[in-house]
Write a protein that binds this DNA or RNA. Structure first.
Length: 970
RNA sequence: GGUCGUGUAGCCCAACGGCAGAGGCAACCGUCUCAGAAACGGUUCAGUGCAGGUUCGAAUCCUGCCACGACUACCA
């Protein structure tokens, strides 16, 4: 956008450079930038968006609350891209609108700042991640402020702030000091577990598991169950540690040698790390885990109670992957041991002709066969990605055999890596007649295939049939399923399994306990120390936070042998029980700090709670603030990307539920309403072979008039196709928001992003289209301000609009201006309703309609007042400027949303279509409230309709008042 | 392969089962200019991806295909 005098290129003749300034007070980019910066400074100075908490000065308890939250960003060195402000603008509009509607609005912003990318960037550049992260935060903050978002910046914090992660560690300790009571289906403090045990309400089973004892029965505890007072200290301790919601396990993890860390399943995509795309191998490792699986049913049930996108609820449901089936024990032919499997189709046990175990399965420990050892070693060294690259299934016969408890037959046990150690028991009964994978494997290795389920109609299936049907060939010495339909067969076989002790019904989930340790530097240290006997202890709460050690070198030792980075900080690792605040050890006892760190997700699990009371140093959030802002149903509206559908949103729900159970928060779910904004894409070009071409290597040609544009790749001259593609550096199609703001201003940017399309849809960025929004703001400006003089002078009266006299006369002059008034009421109604529905694009269109209509008539200052107020949530800077130019002293931020009159929303006369058999044949002009009977009569009386139905019988007439009349005649 | 979503004018997008158009971009024609740009005024442009079905009436609901996108992927 050029400003006056900007275009001063010398004329070709070399004559004098002319500078024409036709509209010195037009709304230009320069003016927009000037206005925006001025008001941003003013708002900041006035603390216009500061929202007091209950109990604080200025808090109005009579107002309802509205907590509208953005997913906070992970600040990268590259700064904001155009995707960030999309959701932020949406929430800003809502926040501003709700304030005008009389709500106390909590609208905060902060920084998700711990995590791998910052550390990797630090490794590349040699600069400490604390420094690069602070820099990135400063850039993000500066950029966000330039959009004029109405955040209460006094509540800002980063997850790396001492007084934030202090509480992250504190919450970890709450979870560490809790266990899950399956009877009450909730978490309780560990102290209550000990109480229950001391009171004899529970005992410890043969495998160390918790066994409830019904005291009313006054019967002896079940065989093999030991009571608390029979146990020594170590056993008690081990039992307690086994029950903790945060516990130490040694699972097979996704080890990424390149990153030098273990990753959660969710961070591994196609066998590669989500960050960086490095190969990942499987290896057992001692790790901290969260018992999120205990919450599987509640995480599922809670999804019913929240207003979330259906697709996200489905994704979480599938991620949790609850299934019902049975555990079945197959006795090994040698020795007394059993091989336990989980199956969802216990009814097909008669068709289990072999078994398969994962290469990591312990049953293979003593197998010495050379090809088995070789297969296990090969599988170990293969990353997930390599395992998947070979589409064909592989495996070897272990030489072990087991007895099928249903048929009594001896069947072989194979090893194959299509069976995963991490699900079920790492072993399956293979039913090649009913499972595609087993079928493929059986064919490949020539193993027997038996059909044990017929189609529901009784016909025999060909090949593999995984569906339900009628059991057949399923008759053993003590149980028969023959003739039963699948659900009945399942019930019968589970009963039989339980009677004979060969198995039991079982609910399983795909969800596994959450691996919470990382072997990295840039994360929250665990508030845990280890004593010389290898036992872990919580550090004293008054010693929090446990700060990360000062370190110079955070290069990972790229290795297959995991060693946490923090172990290198010897002085930090070695401490005493006294210094760490561990009460149950002698103060001078040597202890070592836990050297793992928490994953990037930790900080984002509870940040929405901290915003409610960010400076509280007594508690992670004050009780009253928590109850006011998140009590009941949690955050009122949470907007962010759909890519967090299962990770962040599941983890945060888990933390929240644990805190809820322990009485620290007052809502069962953290986010009452969730919305995902769509992705903003860009353009790129595609060769016929589908490869992509960066936009700077293509030119547009239009050789023939009246024909579509063609795109030619400059280097080859070949024709390419314009397509929609993600923004990426390599395609050179990334849009920088700073550039757009410079060219048009933040108000135009905000309007354009909201106008591009529905918030939830993905849509391509078209810089060219931004000028439409800019012109709209220019027209708005012109409604109030004279472009020649810069004055807000009424064209009708010639008096300044901000003067009382001018306003009065202005109003008098326009009392008859019905069209503008009606257009304004429509705009107020439509825009308000659309904001509530997050339909910002159509809301803006309603304002454009008003401005287009108003431009043709005279608008009074009072009408402009109202219009400026509905514009204010969308384009706050220009609205504030005009508001003041219209003579107001206060800020438009503190005004109310204008009222509208329902009766002015419809025109007095409407055009009603008359259809015959659904085809429009005529139009009639009637009063908008004409009743059905009159409409029907008027339509039938229409001359043209008369002609068309002449000689036909009118069978039916459908009348939709105010819209149409449809005549069914033949 | 599975799940979810989206296909409407040259482009971006609207349309409680009721006359396919709210709006923006582009194009074209005017106004203003010595001229151009900007701005302003106006005009053109589709029968809704394809094939069926339900209905007085379908872009909208149902079924099956096609294209694109997101997510997910040997979960027994």
């Amino acid at each position: 956008m050029q400003t006056p005098c900007a275009r001063t290129e010398p004329l070709q003749s070399g004559s004098v450079t002319l500078c024409v300034m036709p509209h010195p007070y037009r709304y230009t980019a320069e003016l927009a930038n000037e206005i925006e910066l001025r008001w941003q400074a003013s708002w900041e100075e006035q603390q216009a968006y500061r929202q007091p908490n209950p109990g604080q000065a200025g808090f109005d308890a009579t107002r309802p609350r509205y907590y509208v939250l953005d997913m906070f960003p992970y600040p990268s060195g590259a700064g904001l891209h155009v995707g960030h402000p999309e959701g932020y603008t949406a929430t800003d509009i809502l926040a501003r609108y709700k304030r005008m509607r009389g709500f106390n609005v909590l609208h905060p912003m902060g920084w998700d700042a711990y995590g791998l990318p910052a550390e990797q960037y630090a490794i590349q550049t040699g600069v400490h991640p604390a420094i690069t992260t602070r820099r990135a935060i400063d850039t993000f903050r500066r950029q966000l402020k330039r959009f004029g978002f109405s955040y209460d910046w006094s509540r800002e914090f980063g997850t790396i702030d001492d007084d934030y992660y202090r509480w992250t560690q504190w919450i970890f300790l709450r979870i560490y000091n809790a266990w899950f009571d399956t009877r009450k289906d909730k978490a309780r403090p560990i102290t209550e577990l000990v109480e229950e045990a001391e009171n004899g309400h529970l005992g410890i089973g043969a495998e160390g598991e918790l066994v409830w004892i019904d005291v009313d029965e006054s019967a002896a505890p079940p065989a093999g169950v030991r009571l608390w007072d029979e146990l020594d200290g170590d056993t008690r301790r081990a039992f307690i540690n086994d029950q903790r919601l945060a516990y130490v396990g040694e699972p097979v993890v996704n080890w990424c040698p390149k990153l030098g860390t273990a990753l959660a399943n969710e961070e591994v995509i196609d066998g590669r790390s989500e960050r960086g795309g490095h190969p990942v191998i499987r290896k057992p490792l001692k790790q901290w885990l969260f018992r999120i699986t205990a919450y599987a049913d509640r995480l599922l049930a809670g999804l019913e109670s929240v207003d979330w996108p259906e697709s996200t609820r489905i994704q979480q449901t599938e991620w949790i992957g609850r299934s019902e089936g049975a555990d079945i024990d197959f006795k090994l032919t040698d020795g007394d041991a059993f091989l336990r499997v989980y199956t969802t189709r216990p009814d097909t046990v008669f068709g289990a002709t072999f078994m398969v175990v994962a290469p990591e399965h312990p049953v293979l420990q003593d197998v010495e066969r050379e090809e088995v050892r070789a297969y296990i070693d090969a599988a170990k060294g293969r990353s997930e990605v390599e395992r998947m690259e070979t589409k064909k299934k592989t495996g070897v016969d272990s030489g072990l055999t087991a007895i099928n408890p249903a048929t009594g037959e001896t069947i072989p046990i194979w090893v194959a890596d299509y069976v995963l150690m991490g699900y079920g028991h790492g072993a399956i009964m293979a039913v090649p007649g009913g499972d595609e994978r087993d079928h493929e494997f059986a064919q490949q290795y020539d193993l027997p295939i038996v059909t044990v389920v017929l189609h529901p109609d009784g016909s025999a299936p060909e090949g593999c049939y995984p569906g339900e049907g009628i059991a057949v060939r399923s008759c053993g010495s003590s149980v028969s399923l023959d003739g039963l339909e699948t659900p009945d067969a399942k019930r019968r076989i589970i009963d039989w399994l339980e009677e004979t002790g060969a198995g039991r019904g079982k609910v399983n989930t795909r969800l596994r306990d959450w691996l919470f340790s990382r072997q990295r530097y840039w994360g929250e240290p665990f508030p845990i120390v280890w004593d010389e006997d290898g036992r872990h202890h919580a550090v004293g709460e008054d010693t929090l936070p446990v700060r990360p050690p000062e370190m110079e070198d955070f290069h990972p030792a790229e290795s297959d042998d995991p060693r946490p980075l923090l172990a290198k900080a010897r002085d930090w690792v070695q401490t005493t029980a006294g210094a760490a605040g561990v009460a149950d050890l002698a103060a001078d006892a040597a202890v070592t700090r836990e050297t793992n760190t928490m994953p990037g997700w930790a900080g984002s699990c509870w940040y929405y709670l901290r915003y409610a009371d960010p400076h509280n140093d007594e508690r992670f959030v004050g009780e009253e603030a928590e109850r006011y802002w998140t009590g009941g149903h949690g955050v009122d509206l949470y907007i962010g990307g759909a890519e967090h559908a299962v990770l962040h949103l599941l983890y945060a729900r888990f933390w929240h539920m644990a805190l809820y159970d322990l009485g620290f928060v007052s809502s069962p779910e953290p986010f009452g309403k969730l919305f995902h904004q769509g992705m903003i894409t860009s353009h790129a070009y595609q060769r016929p072979d589908k490869s992509l071409v960066p936009i700077d290597q293509v030119e547009k040609r239009n050789e023939v008039e009246e024909q579509d544009d063609r795109y030619i790749e400059t280097a080859t001259g070949g024709e390419v196709k314009q397509i929609v593609a993600k923004m990426s550096k390599s395609l050179k199609n990334v849009i920088n928001p700073d550039d757009i703001i410079e060219e048009y201003g933040a108000d135009t940017f905000r309007l354009y992003e909201m106008y591009m399309g529905a918030l939830a849809d993905s849509k391509p960025w078209n810089t060219r289209d931004t000028s439409g929004m800019f012109r709209f703001l220019q027209r708005v400006w012109r409604l109030a301000v004279d472009e020649e003089t810069g004055e807000t002078r009424s064209k009708r009266t010639g008096l300044p609009r901000h003067s009382p006299e001018g306003r009065r006369r202005d109003g008098d002059a326009c009392e008859t201006n019905d069209a503008v008034e009606r257009a304004l009421h429509r705009a107020i109604a439509k825009t308000g309703a659309d904001i509530e529905k997050l339909h910002f694009n159509t809301g803006i269109a309603a304002m454009i309609e008003f401005v287009n209509a108003a431009g043709k008539h005279h608008v009074t200052a009072e009408q402009l007042d109202r219009f400026v107020r509905i514009l204010a949530p969308f384009a706050p800077h220009i609205a504030e400027e005009l508001w003041h130019r219209l003579g107001h002293e206060d800020s438009v931020v503190g005004t109310t949303w204008p009222e509208f009159d329902e009766s002015l929303l419809v025109d007095t006369t409407v055009d009603v279509a008359v259809q015959i058999m659904g085809k429009v044949r005529a139009h009639i002009q009637v009063a908008h409230d004409t009743d059905k009977k009159t409409l029907e009569a008027t339509a039938l009386a229409h001359e043209r309709i008369q002609e068309l139905i002449d000689g036909k019988t009118v069978r039916k007439v459908i009348v939709v008042p105010g819209r149409l009349v449809n005549i069914v005649a033949s």
